[in-house]
């Protein structure tokens, strides 16, 4: 972990000196996470791509204000999330949060066909419930459980202080439970 951080710090130092290939490596490291955060906000592939590109451009232009030794990703995700929020996508154009069809059952499990159907239906309902949550709740849950972001990174994506991430996540989970319960009734 420390090696990765040191390598990233070296790349950032080179990028600050105008080394564009070094910055390209940084972009390649973080583009997937930044794009997914932007997509979770806009739910539009084209707007998420545009927001992510603009975020990397802004980050490069502001590199001289980036503190040496600080983790890059929380800072980048904050910019990417802001860029995504600046793009308002009509509800009718929004893409749905959905699950890939798994080709194989989870290893070690040998459920009956009926159990598989119930399980798949349960997962789909859970994802649909997440999709119905307000953006801040959806992003809090997806950042933590789907993208596996740390607290500082979540704070960047959510645009809040790191100290408030836990309470935001807790409230989002409570609203998700309510959403699921309402659907069951």
């Amino acid at each position: 972990m420390a090696e990765i951080a040191a390598e990233e710090a070296a790349l950032i130092a080179r990028a600050k000196a105008g080394d564009l290939p070094a910055y390209e490596q940084i972009v390649e490291c973080h583009q997937a996470t930044a794009f997914r955060v932007a997509w979770l906000i806009t739910r539009s592939s084209s707007d998420a791509e545009e927001a992510t590109q603009d975020a990397f451009l802004k980050a490069y232009r502001a590199l001289d204000r980036f503190r040496d030794g600080a983790p890059f990703r929380p800072w980048l995700l904050r910019i990417a999330a802001n860029e995504a929020r600046n793009r308002r996508v009509a509800e009718s154009r929004r893409e749905r949060l959905s699950l890939r069809m798994l080709e194989e059952a989870p290893a070690g499990a040998s459920p009956s066909a009926e159990e598989e159907l119930v399980d798949a239906d349960s997962r789909r309902r859970l994802v649909a419930a997440i999709g119905r949550l307000p953006e801040r709740d959806r992003l809090a849950i997806a950042s933590r459980y789907f993208l596996d972001l740390g607290e500082a990174e979540m704070a960047g994506a959510l645009g809040c202080r790191p100290g408030t991430v836990k309470s935001r996540l807790s409230r989002a989970l409570a609203r998700l439970r309510t959403e699921m319960e309402n659907e069951d009734e």
Partner: peptide, 11 residues
């Protein structure tokens, strides 16, 4: 939610 992470279908 953790179990779902590998199945989310991002673009």
């Amino acid at each position: 939610l953790r179990e779902l992470a590998a199945e989310v279908d991002y673009p």
